[in-house]
Design a protein around this nucleic acid. Structure first.
Lengths: 385, 385
DNA sequence: TTTGATAGTTAAGATGACTAACAAAGTGTC
DNA sequence: GACACTTTGTTAGTCATCTTAACTATCAAA
């Protein structure tokens, strides 16, 4: 494909070159016009004219003079990260977490609030509005300097029209969150599934930084995966890619119609808990199952040891299946899996190496609770910068 | 991402617009300059000038006059599919199949030959040269009107430098097929794994035509899958995507180091044959295992029936695992799987519906032996038109 | 101080798309 | 058949943007 499937004209050329300059500038931080010309293979006059234009617009700043390389000293340029702010929001249970970031994606201020129960769409949206106001005041950005808002929601989000098409845990079914927020705030709003955002966050600022093909496996109440292909979040045809809870791993049992999710039923936190209950003595179920299993296993509980082994093996099965389909460069584990520790990782690696000749590095998610918010901010930056 | 990561200039604009026109012309077959202007949103003078240029170059032909829509009759244009030829070649065992096609991808002439044993790189390349000569003569294209050659090879091909990095069945390890052929023929040569080409062929001209997200499952001596994401063949980080023979399906057994492929060991044709041998009476192993199992199962052989059921269930597991990871729009089955017939497909669909809420249509590959050659031709067309 | 290099700007030229106007070739209506 | 109106395609001139070539500004080192 040599073409780009799009009509070209001078406007497009200029837009492309401006974005090329900006992206190089973001990448190399402090460079001169001459450097940019070399980096982009554009002529120096062209770079100068575009840079001047963007300086006038406030997108770029001149920030001092650099070292001479045998001639006139270069004027260093910097992308003006502070030109606009971006807000990310994530609903987690009945809590709303929000942060404001600059154009570099760096979080500047945070905000959190508990939603009044019962949560319905209206209270959620009003809470968002309050959060936006607070963050704008704290950070000193005014409304015109807000690039956009990214919102993470539980359930399946219909990205085309911005409504929530499926969200059993909240009462928000069918709510046009995006339209509503855009109408009220008059800035671009993007919504996305909260788990997807964690993957995107880890990819942009976490342990997966810079790796263009990676898979995230998340074990929580359910089991899911986030897939990044060639630097893009992969959604599948029905937005259902990565729903690996449906994989055929572990005992199939009697399947009743409409009761899907074999892997999930067996090896999600809920599935594991059911089995662990019968084995562990004196376990406070508010704490991590895996941590407790590890503790009691080391304490000599043979059954716990066996269950743990069984869990490792079947988690590894899930990983093998994804690896064999996708051949990723990196595999990131998250959720309850982060509790397995160094030896757990080692164990998983051993198992994987037994079954596949090409095992990608397995790493633990690094951002924790912040991943979702960072992801929310990143989808805005990706779409609008 | 608003930008394209590339510097823009007038040359690029022209190239983009030329390709845009060509692609619309290929799509809509016979249209006027005015129609093209509407389709591409380019101005009529611009379309006229580009079209005239391409007519002079022989890429486009004027082919008569169309019906008036209330004004002057339009001059109909057609992409000149006959402007250049493309050759596709596939090695299959000791046989070499080749075809020449025009720019529409339609096969014009075929050629086949048996390679003298033992096959080494030199004999293979010489056979290719002969085939090219024969096909050029038959079709009347001269060498200058050959766009390129696509070659399908067994084993893993290193696409970056065009060498075969792994091909156990042939004696071609490390052979720089691409460079060698380009040096001898002086036209672009593309090499690709033969199974991948079957997927690409089915996508462009077979049962998967027009579906931009699809997965092909192939059961033969081994088990593999071809993945098309957003119209592009997906290769993974180490060119190992779709190696689903490694999936953890069926009995794991004792795994010796370096002996990978649980799914493959259990449910490839080889794996099935091992089990079938003990059950089937009077089976000629040159014929399809599945066909024979179906026949004897209907004839009342209970054990054959059970094995067949077991095979369906585990093939379906493999399909479920791929579906849950990738969420494709279409699933195409190929190889030994094509022998399961209508009822077999129905059975698979039932099983899938039990385990996943979103089951894509399951269809049988349509092109048979030609798929590989068509795929080889398509990778050339994709790269160079 | 001179020489040579690097950084940045200015001016002129090239390219290619766009607009406006027009010619060519129809249809339809009275 | 004359006239109005459409659609197709071309011509001529304008505009936007990049490029080249030449110039100024600034600096290091001999």
């Amino acid at each position: 494909m040599l073409g780009h499937g799009q009509a070209g004209n001078t406007k497009l050329v200029k837009q492309m070159n401006r974005h090329l300059l900006i992206s190089r500038l973001r990448e190399y931080k402090r460079v001169s016009r001459a450097d940019l010309a070399k980096l982009t293979e554009l002529s120096r006059p062209c770079v100068s004219s575009l840079v001047d234009e963007m300086i006038r617009e406030g997108l770029i700043n001149e920030v001092g003079v650099g070292e001479s390389k045998g001639g006139r000293k270069p004027i260093l340029l910097e992308y003006n990260f502070k030109a606009k702010g971006v807000i990310g929001a994530v609903f987690e249970g009945s809590t709303l977490h929000m942060s404001i970031a600059d154009l570099s994606g760096e979080l500047l201020f945070n905000y959190g609030t508990r939603l009044s129960q019962p949560t319905n769409g209206e209270t959620a949206i009003r809470a968002l509005e309050v959060g936006v106001d607070v963050l704008l005041k704290q950070s000193g950005f005014d409304k015109d300097h807000l690039l956009g808002i990214g919102i993470g929601l539980p359930g399946i989000t219909q990205r085309t029209d911005g409504t929530i098409s499926y969200a059993p845990s909240t009462g928000w079914m069918g709510l046009p969150v995006q339209q509503e927020m855009e109408a009220r705030l008059r800035i671009p709003v993007f919504i996305e599934n909260d788990v997807n955002l964690m993957t995107i966050g880890e990819f942009h600022q976490g342990i997966g930084f810079g790796v263009r093909n990676q898979v995230h496996m998340y074990v929580g109440t359910g089991i899911g995966a986030g897939i990044i292909v060639d630097g893009q979040f992969y959604r599948g045809f029905r937005e259902a890619a990565g729903e690996i809870g449906y994989m055929m791993i572990g005992p199939v049992g009697r399947t009743r119609r409409g009761e899907y999710g074999v892997f999930e039923r067996n090896y999600s936190v809920s599935g594991i808990t059911e089995k662990a209950r019968l084995i562990l003595t004196g376990w406070n179920e508010d704490t991590s199952v895996i941590a407790e299993l590890m503790r009691q296993s080391e304490g000599g509980n043979r059954e716990a040891e066996q269950l743990l082994e069984d869990i490792y093996v079947h988690w590894a099965h899930g990983m093998v299946n994804m690896i064999s389909v996708l051949d990723p460069e990196l595999l990131i584990i998250n959720g309850e899996m982060v509790n397995i520790g160094e030896q757990g990782i080692k164990k998983l690696n051993q198992l994987l190496a037994e079954w596949v000749p090409f095992v990608p590095p397995v790493k633990v998610a690094a951002l924790g609770i912040k991943a979702g918010i960072i992801g929310a901010i990143q989808i805005v930056l990706e779409a609008l910068t």
